[in-house]
Write a protein that binds this DNA or RNA. Structure first.
Lengths: 108, 108
DNA sequence: TATTATTATCGTAATATTGCAATATTAAAT
DNA sequence: ATTTAATATTGCAATATTACGATAATAATA
């Protein structure tokens, strides 16, 4: 065991869970906030800013790329990571419609 | 290693990450959707509905309780789990303001 | 009080995640 | 072509998560 039984859930549930999971780490929250503050960003800044090893930051960036929230452009020997505007709105809407599907009704 | 360095992040970042993390499992998504569909709910229904062992469902319910999204009332030998209306709105607003803090700006 | 039904907890196995050092890769600059 | 600087990948150790069977706890009912 230890493995999530994705087969018993539908694609939407799995995708939504994956989005939440990626957002579910304080380093990734901090990375997003920092990038958005800077308007431009390079990984090395993050290493100093966040205080995790370069390899760890790189790993977190990959997670964020897995939900397409970050896009990176090569800029010389650096990479400029930015928040993907289109995906940003998409994710917001996916999350909002999830909240609408679980709208609480009066019970207890 | 293997342990998240919560000390280097602030309380808001840690709490937000925890909220996302709890929502980051398809079983918990499915549980919330089912409870909201039923308007009332008992754990045993969930076991049949979701297809995970009773112990596993109980564990997932505890996770959802950890962010206060579910409240349970004892109802005879059963427990009626419901979505906590106040917290539901609170979480929506926490998540929305997070998205506002990472509003993408034009860069790349 | 004993039984039954329902949910919680414990213990454990399997897998995933986090974090880092070491190394590889990549591309600009010398 | 070398060197340098920045990021990615690999390998590994420590911890966390997921899942389940077994068992405990709880409360209604017989």
């Amino acid at each position: 065991m230890g493995i999530t039984k994705t087969q018993i859930f539908d694609t939407e549930q799995n995708e939504l869970a994956h989005i939440f999971k990626v957002l579910g780490h304080p380093a990734r929250i901090a990375i997003l906030q920092y990038i958005s503050q800077q308007n431009a960003c390079i990984c090395n800044d993050l290493v100093e800013e966040i205080g995790l090893a370069q390899a760890t930051i790189s790993q977190h960036l990959r997670e964020l790329k897995s939900i397409d929230l970050l896009k990176g452009e090569i800029e010389g020997k650096r990479i400029c990571y930015c928040i993907n505007l289109i995906r940003y709105h998409e994710l917001q809407s996916i999350i909002n419609s999830f909240f609408n599907t679980i709208k609480p009704t009066t019970c207890c």
